[in-house]
Design a protein around this nucleic acid. Structure first.
Length: 500
RNA sequence: GUCCCCUUCGUCUAGUGGUUAGGACACCGGGUUUUCAUCCCGGCAACAGGGGUUCGACUCUCCUAGGGGAUACCA
């Protein structure tokens, strides 16, 4: 039997870390087994689903570089892959369950409303206390309509009375399954969500129905999803049983939590993949990090490409315990991947960000392009995020603001001495230039010695004058990229300020 | 409340009865250095607790505790 797995998100929000992690594990499993990876859109919540989220999903995975073998955009033999386009199918299968007496019509209306009614009734007539207590604390549907005579129910439906279809969960007995990761899991049927809705009053299926019908009709072999789904597993199994179908193998993946140990959410920081992209993360870093959350790859390395992950992935190496998403460690991965990039490739990624910061044109002019190409090797090992480039290279494209005089002074040097040092440095730049790094550095060292100060005492004021900041790429190289001619006026300005 | 899952350094993890419990991030110290960063070296730091099983438990089992998840006409 061939491996067929799916990622089945509902387009009700931006693609986030948790979703991507589930998708990634499915993808790795499919690829490592030579199976198929399928995308299915679960848009059965018509009030929350939106096209822009579908678009975001495509954009996200295009950026990440995943692809699916079957899906709404690429087609496949088991389509359509959008649940709203399979509307009739679910209705038909729900009907089948009704006919087999595995499901029933329910006319209770909205559950909360029903509960309130139950409550009120209980207040008036004391004989309903138990049910009321249950309803009050929200422990699920009370199965009121389960006992309605089927013929009677059919009549009411025919008469146009609003209704839903609910699954008949057996009142006793147990349902068990072997989770590929967690092992044997057994539930008392009495503990399963009591008679969940399969078909909503709007005629759309709930997740439970659509999920089971689609996984079966699409011949999904393995369902890998987050552990938050464990409680609905017995419910799904009961449905497979009712239909007489062979269920897929189940594998519940550990959750991803935030720093505080709660389910990862916006308040923990970025969670939408979009945010990571615009903040200057590299997709390879993100994939690498996420792949290692709750999973290991056996050879003790830290850095893996997507194809290496595919070849090393093993279900047995997935962890059972939830993992905390560590932004700091992700940052380290990002730095690793930035440094691993060829300068030319990195420059290509940096240019749009400089443009976005308003420092160069979009696309950059040939002259700007040349500067970016020269400067890229200087910043490569200094970037934690691609977006750091704007601050790091700002001085190459705009005139920096000269810091206050007090900040120009090295320790132990006064304004006059600092000005003298700067003047000497200026002269060296004029005389020697910065084309020959070793020569200019040697000259500066000699000059510092002559002045009786440290090399840094000469360089820091110069750095501040030329770049406007205390932190910059190596100075001589920076001036080389900037051009001595452009640096001199900045130095003059600083000297003037020091002498004022 | 009820049900289910989980439990090795602060974090991600290796480990499948006998190990000085290993690595990575973070942190702390030191080195290289022109600031910052990179890089290199070193250090700190863990088997939740208690019963069993066993000659021997981080590894098997039970209980407790703690954490997480689920309890929708959302997925």
């Amino acid at each position: 039997m061939s491996v067929r797995v799916r990622y089945a998100p509902s387009p009700t929000g931006l693609q986030h870390i948790g979703g991507v992690r589930t998708a990634l594990f499915n993808y790795l499993f499919a690829r490592s087994m030579g199976g198929s990876f399928i995308l299915r859109l679960e848009d059965t919540d018509r009030s929350r689903s939106a096209d822009r989220y579908v678009q975001n999903l495509y954009d996200t995975f295009k950026w990440l570089g995943f692809y699916w073998d079957e899906g709404p955009d690429v087609g496949g033999a088991f389509g359509p892959y959008v649940q709203s386009e399979r509307f009739a199918l679910y209705k038909e299968y729900a009907q089948r369950l009704i006919d087999m007496d595995k499901a029933y019509y329910c006319f209770c209306g909205d559950a909360k409303t029903a509960d309130k009614l139950a409550n009120k009734a209980a207040d008036q007539a004391d004989d309903n206390a138990e049910e009321a207590a249950q309803a009050e604390s929200g422990y699920g549907y009370n199965r009121r309509c389960r006992s309605i005579d089927p013929a009677e129910a059919k009549r009411r439906v025919a008469a146009g009375e609003p209704h839903v279809i609910r699954l008949k969960i057996p009142l006793d007995g147990t349902t068990s399954f072997t989770d590929l990761l967690l092992g044997e899991i057994e539930w008392k049927n009495a503990d399963v969500n009591p008679d969940p809705v399969l078909l909503k009053s709007d005629g759309f299926p709930t997740y439970h129905l659509a999920n089971v019908v689609d996984d079966h009709t699409m011949q999904i072999s393995h369902v890998m999803r987050a552990q938050e789904w464990i409680p609905s597993a017995p419910l799904h199994l009961l449905m497979y049983q009712a239909f007489g179908w062979q269920p897929p193998k189940l594998c519940h993946l550990p959750m991803v939590l935030g720093q505080d140990g709660q389910k990862l959410s916006k308040r923990h920081g970025a969670t939408a993949v979009d945010e990571f992209r615009t903040k200057g993360y590299l997709k390879d870093a993100l994939i690498n990090y996420v792949a290692m959350l709750g999973c290991s790859y056996q050879d003790g390395r830290d850095l893996y490409s997507l194809s290496e992950l595919v070849s090393l992935f093993k279900l047995e190496h997935i962890n059972k315990a939830p993992a905390i998403f560590d932004y700091v460690k992700l940052e380290w991965f990002n730095g690793q991947y930035i440094r691993a990039l060829e300068p030319a490739a990195l420059a290509g990624l940096l240019a749009p960000l400089l443009a976005a910061a308003g420092l160069v044109q979009d696309p950059p002019t040939a002259a700007q392009r040349a500067i970016i190409d020269q400067a890229t090797p200087l910043v490569r090992e200094r970037l934690k995020y691609l977006t750091d480039v704007a601050e790091a290279l700002r001085f190459l494209f705009t005139e920096p603001v000269l810091p206050p005089v007090a900040e120009l002074l090295p320790k132990k040097l006064d304004a006059a001495a600092t000005a003298a040092g700067l003047a000497a440095a200026r002269q060296l730049l004029v005389d020697i230039g910065v084309d020959d790094h070793d020569r200019i550095e040697a000259a500066f060292r000699a000059q510092a010695e002559a002045l009786g100060c440290k090399l840094g005492d000469l360089l820091m004021p110069l750095r501040l004058a030329v770049t406007g900041t205390k932190v910059s790429p190596p100075l001589f190289e920076s001036i080389h990229v900037l051009g001595v001619a452009k640096a001199l006026p900045r130095i003059d300005k600083a000297i003037a300020a020091l002498r004022a």
